[in-house]
């Protein structure tokens, strides 16, 4: 189970946003929809433990993220949450393989090379394992970023605008990859987007109202 209850967040500029109570069952795929400024990204960051809400409860399974200490939250995020951003933020100083290794390392998990290669292989990018990210095509980079998000077999996969800059065909492929990998890890998938093409693909959708 993944959800929020009575969450409000206050931005640096002083404006506050109140998010609707919401919850998803394990393994469900959700689209988080709404125009710019409706709080999609904020909600996604709160769900990912990247942002602490000013008030309210955030839960993943039995855990209350809003109650975890800083270090515990870091560890929980590393082990149970996979995030794919619109800008992929692969670490260019490291090879593809080591980018995945980094995810294992920061989560405090064992760094098994076979497992890493297996995940890369599943996503069809095993052959670029030794390449640095700047040598990858956009499609390959997208797959590597997804591989990094799922390498720790997270309970929750969060994607922030993964498709908005892509053409229809690539958009379709990315959505298929995300849902397929979420299924493979039995993870709850939440995609925050204003991209209408996503709406029909996922079984559930949460519409956020634009802020007044």
């Amino acid at each position: 189970m993944l959800g929020i209850r009575d969450v409000t967040h206050r931005y640096r500029d002083g404006t506050t946003i109140t998010l609707p109570n919401w919850q998803a069952q394990d393994g469900e795929h959700w689209a988080l929809l709404g125009p710019s400024g409706s709080g999609k990204t904020t909600l996604l960051h709160i769900l990912g433990g990247l942002l602490r809400p000013q008030r309210g409860q955030v839960f993943i399974g039995e855990r209350r993220l809003d109650q975890l200490g800083e270090r515990a939250l870091d560890q929980f995020r590393g082990q149970h949450i996979g995030v794919v951003f619109q800008t992929l933020h692969l670490v260019d100083a490291l090879t593809v393989e080591n980018n995945l290794r980094l995810a294992r390392y920061f989560a405090g998990l064992s760094q098994d090379r076979n497992q890493i290669l297996e995940v890369l292989d599943r996503l069809g990018v095993a052959e670029v394992a030794r390449h640095h990210p700047h040598r990858l095509s956009q499609g390959q980079a997208q797959r590597v970023a997804l591989a990094r998000a799922i390498i720790n077999e997270p309970a929750v996969i969060l994607a922030d605008e993964p498709t908005s800059a892509l053409d229809d065909k690539t958009c379709q492929q990315v959505l298929e990859l995300l849902t397929a990998q979420a299924l493979a890890c039995h993870a709850t998938l939440v995609i925050a987007t204003h991209d209408a093409r996503v709406r029909g693909v996922l079984e559930h959708a949460l519409e956020l109202e634009p802020a007044e």
């Binding site: 590393g78 800008t87 933020h89 405090g108």
Partner: peptide, 16 residues
């Protein structure tokens, strides 16, 4: 800073 933020996302603590 994006790399650093990404590392935090991957579970790296501030101390790390």
């Amino acid at each position: 800073r994006y790399d650093l933020a990404q590392m935090r996302t991957l579970g790296a603590s501030r101390r790390r």
